[in-house]
């Protein structure tokens, strides 16, 4: 029987993509597909037909360790001693800060995961780890500010990892940048040291839709929208 022309193929491919086939049937169809472009085409067509159904599935942010592990399994490592040194010169200009940023976040999260109190980002007595973490970098990709808040916490702890040069007469304002709206002022940050900013609502409410955090220099702490450019920015990630 010429299975590639059979209407049964189309039915099976549809059921495969929809998800109704048993484990065994799925395996068999997948292994046939490896050798048959016709089966691949039938599957791809069904994926394409049903793809719009995914639009309503809520997005979710995977833990930061997912990318770490993917990177471990995929990153080319030519020389074990200092693979990143070899990597640097080959990268286009913009990606060096990006890479520094990713390394920074990976290292920081690693440290935070092991010992959240290291940066003073979580009280030692608290058993749960910070649930929202942001690492803000300057234009050169250097980490300058760490921010964290416990899940359902009412305080955002901000720690300057290196002194911030605030122009005279200005204040450094921290902004939460939601995925789908205008920046929301969080509070003023100092030039160095650590500060706890009281949140108007539990952290889950404040940061649920916040993808990034950023700092700008403003004339006063009362501004509702950022007037200056962002001098620091970074992803805001929900953890644990």
């Amino acid at each position: 029987m010429d299975y590639e022309r059979s209407p049964l193929l189309d039915q099976l491919a549809g059921a495969y993509v929809l998800g109704t086939l048993s484990r065994r049937a799925r395996r068999r169809l997948a292994s046939v597909a490896e050798r048959s472009p016709a089966v691949q085409r039938a599957l791809a067509q069904w994926h394409e037909r049903l793809a719009p159904l995914e639009r309503s599935i809520p997005q979710a942010t995977p833990g930061a360790h997912v990318w770490q592990r993917i990177a471990q399994r995929t990153q080319p490592m030519p020389a074990r001693a200092a693979w990143w040194q070899g990597l640097w010169p080959r990268l286009p200009g913009w990606s060096a800060p990006a890479l520094a940023f990713s390394l920074g976040i990976v290292l920081t999260l690693g440290v935070l995961h092991q010992a959240p109190q290291t940066l003073g980002l979580a009280p030692i007595a608290t058993r749960s780890a910070p649930s929202y973490v942001g690492l803000l970098t300057d234009a050169s990709g250097e980490p300058v500010l760490g921010a964290s808040s416990l899940r359902r916490g009412s305080v955002l702890t901000v720690k300057l990892l290196k002194p911030l040069v605030i122009p005279t007469g200005k204040v450094a304002m921290l902004w939460a940048l939601p995925v789908d709206g205008a920046p929301v002022p969080v509070g003023a940050v100092p030039a160095s040291g650590k500060v706890e900013i009281a949140l108007g609502a539990p952290s889950d409410t404040v940061f649920a839709k916040v993808a990034r955090l950023a700092v700008s220099f403003e004339d006063s702490t009362g501004v509702a929208t950022p007037g200056g450019a962002f001098v620091l920015s970074g992803h805001c990630i929900k953890l644990w």
């Binding site: 998800g19 995914e54 599935i57 997005q59 979710a60 995977p62 990177a71 995929t74 990006a98």
Partner: peptide, 25 residues
């Protein structure tokens, strides 16, 4: 073409949607 930076960007752009799909199931 083994461009890891491009792969990273691909992850940044698509992982939230794809994680939602995996989580749903």
């Amino acid at each position: 073409a083994r461009d890891h930076a491009a792969f990273r960007e691909l992850y940044e752009l698509t992982s939230a949607h794809l994680f939602g799909v995996a989580l749903r199931i």
